[in-house]
Design a protein around this nucleic acid. Structure first.
Lengths: 219, 219
DNA sequence: TAGATTGTTAATCGATTAACAATC
DNA sequence: TAGATTGTTAATCGATTAACAATC
């Protein structure tokens, strides 16, 4: 609510770049430079300098100074405010396998606006334990749990076969956004946010590029 | 080499969709349907039907039958051949933290052309152990290890601060593609493939969308 | 001043979607 | 035949990049 109502549509691509800007700018905090220019940011992050300026203009009202660039501190503050690093959304995670554990243990989310408050699984050997300080409950208690909290994000790290039923349960439990790490497309009612994270998709890109350079070498 | 030389540039977006097509088509294998149409695939995977046809045309020479669609078995075979599921690339992983362990334990990679053959870390408490059947060696032995194997892909799951030096070491060790899970941009010489996997970028998109719907409700 | 940089408008590029004839 | 579907060409859309005047 501290922001003035900004109906400006920032593209998902810009959004994806913001964390890179932020971490790069933070890495400059300890040095004695106070200003950074778009061309420098661009070369450092492998981007086009006009794109950097447009991204900055889209999410901040800071004006750059010709010949100097942008004040680093202000830039950091504006990006953080825009991303919403301050006001955390609460999330719950379903599926305490290897990946689920890794996400539960990851320290970086809180700095980017996500606080995972509990995990759920059906395996009795993990139910009742804690992982990285977060309690693991039985999946049967998920819906009730959500009634007493304001969890908005549901993280799905169950096997592909169980992803859709998990998704259905989360939506029934009033979850507004699904972060889906299972390699399937989920069926959701309108208004529910879904973000798919399919690392096998990325692997496909790597393998194809490798095949290309291998193919060009031995024709 | 079994493929005929195909210089057709398939977009990264198409490449990303292929695993979704594949897993959906595989899920139909047990049923008694032999053909599937583009409109059905599209609605199931939330895509445009023309896009589905174009994707299929780009990676397969199979012809669809009017009123019927595409033969599922042939489609599966062609996608798998295109992705290169058969001929595995070998990969090594550096950084045996939570995420590193999760990737080492993930069973799905081999079906998509990646075989992780070893992991590396500097922590003496994990060096010498095995994770999911894969040996963990000291990072000091990485370069030598690579000389005796044909590892092409290096997976970086170290903390952000160590990512660049890890990357440099991998490239010195003759790795051709870097799969980078650290939230920083890496500096690499020309010709090296880099695929960045920054899940915090995705989180940013989720949070922003949540903020939007929250903002539209209470103005 | 000269030159680096900003901010913005216009041009380019590529991906998605619409339109439509051809086929079974 | 009528209608569903394919395959392809054209139109649209959005993101990236180029061009350039303004500023310090």
């Amino acid at each position: 609510m501290s922001e003035k109502s900004t109906p400006n549509q920032v593209s998902a691509n810009t959004l994806r770049r913001l964390p890179y800007y932020l971490s790069y700018l933070k890495s400059l905090k300890n040095t004695d430079v106070a200003y950074i220019s778009a061309p420098v940011i661009a070369s450092e992050l492998d981007l086009n300098e006009v794109q950097v300026r447009k991204d900055i203009a889209a999410i901040s009202s800071v004006a750059g100074k010709p010949k100097k660039g942008f004040e680093i501190d202000v830039l950091i503050r504006d990006i953080q405010a825009y991303i919403g690093c301050e006001d955390n959304n609460c999330g719950i995670l379903v599926g305490v396998g290897h990946l689920g554990r890794a996400l539960l243990a990851y320290k970086g989310f809180e700095a980017y606006g996500l606080k995972i408050i509990a995990a759920f699984d059906s395996d009795p050997s993990v139910v009742g334990t804690e992982i990285a300080g977060k309690p693991v409950y039985h999946i049967a208690s998920l819906r009730e749990f959500c009634q007493s909290t304001d969890a908005a994000i549901g993280i799905i790290t169950v096997p592909a076969e169980a992803a859709q039923s998990t998704c259905d349960l989360l939506i029934k439990s009033n979850i507004k956004a699904i972060w889906n790490f299972a390699p399937v497309m989920l069926n959701v009612p309108e208004g529910i946010i879904v973000q798919n994270e399919n690392i096998v998709s990325s692997l496909t890109i790597i393998n194809k590029k490798l095949a290309e350079i291998a193919g060009s070498k031995q024709p």
